[in-house]
Amino acid sequence: MSTDVVRPVVSRDNSYFFEGTASRELRIQRCNACGVLRHPPGPACPNCGALDRGWVVAKGEGTVYSYVVHRAPQVPGKQLPLVIALLDLEEGVRMVAEVTGVPADGPDGLRIGERLVVDWNVIDDELTLPIWRRPEGERQ
């Protein structure tokens, strides 16, 4: 098990998400009572209060709503600067996302409104995390 990466806390509320990433699926929590999607996950539906939750597999595409370039402090297991975006997923939820392959500065840096697709960062046998990138063929 890798010890140089900050590992997420896996709970009953989010275990489906990490089981999905291990299978290369981006899963979004869904209320089985009213159908509302939500991220991050939680125990009760914010729309109807039901505790009956499930999930759907997201398409894995999103649009940059906002972003930051993290330059300090150092994050264990990460090389700085680190580009972090808030993405609007096609399914209607927002997700905080690490972005790879995008310069932190300059004309080829990330832009609000830009489309990104999910990819997978395999940390070790027990942990795979979503990481976002430009679609193939997009500006470099």
Score class of each variant (00 low, 15 high):
82 L>C: 04
6 V>E: 13
122 V>R: 15
15 S>I: 14
62 G>N: 01
106 G>H: 07
112 I>R: 13
71 R>T: 15
97 A>C: 03
45 C>Y: 01
116 L>M: 04
136 E>A: 15
40 P>L: 08
11 S>P: 09
72 A>M: 06
61 E>K: 11
134 R>Q: 02
70 H>D: 07
107 P>E: 15
104 A>I: 04
57 V>W: 06
127 L>M: 09
34 C>R: 10
127 L>A: 09
45 C>D: 03
113 G>C: 09
65 Y>M: 00
25 E>T: 01
64 V>C: 11
55 W>K: 00
75 V>I: 15
40 P>E: 10
110 L>F: 05
57 V>S: 04
26 L>Q: 04
139 R>G: 12
136 E>Y: 04
2 S>F: 13
21 T>H: 00
128 T>F: 00
115 R>Q: 05
40 P>A: 10
26 L>W: 08
23 S>D: 15
79 Q>S: 15
28 I>D: 01
32 N>W: 06
101 G>L: 11
13 D>P: 09
2 S>L: 13
98 E>D: 14
40 P>G: 02
9 V>T: 12
59 K>H: 14
104 A>L: 11
96 V>P: 13
84 I>E: 07
65 Y>G: 01
95 M>P: 00
63 T>E: 13
98 E>L: 12
118 V>C: 02
37 L>V: 08
75 V>E: 09
8 P>D: 06
89 L>S: 01
53 R>M: 06
2 S>T: 15
72 A>T: 12
99 V>L: 08
62 G>D: 03
23 S>R: 12
30 R>Q: 15
124 D>C: 12
5 V>M: 12
113 G>N: 07
22 A>R: 05
15 S>V: 15
16 Y>D: 04
52 D>A: 14
45 C>W: 04
98 E>C: 09
115 R>W: 13
43 P>G: 08
101 G>Q: 08
35 G>Q: 10
115 R>K: 14
82 L>M: 06
114 E>R: 10
121 N>R: 08
3 T>Y: 12
45 C>I: 07
107 P>L: 07
5 V>C: 09
54 G>N: 02
71 R>N: 14
68 V>D: 12
102 V>I: 11
122 V>E: 15
78 K>C: 13
55 W>C: 00
2 S>N: 15
140 Q>H: 06
78 K>R: 11
54 G>H: 03
80 L>R: 05
22 A>S: 14
129 L>C: 09
106 G>R: 07
72 A>C: 05
44 A>Q: 08
84 I>M: 02
54 G>Y: 02
114 E>P: 03
44 A>N: 05
85 A>P: 10
10 V>C: 06
23 S>M: 10
85 A>G: 11
132 W>V: 01
63 T>M: 04
35 G>D: 15
90 E>D: 14
69 V>T: 13
30 R>K: 15
89 L>Y: 01
23 S>K: 12
51 L>K: 08
139 R>Y: 06
130 P>L: 07
71 R>D: 15
16 Y>N: 00
13 D>Y: 11
103 P>A: 12
107 P>F: 04
47 N>W: 05
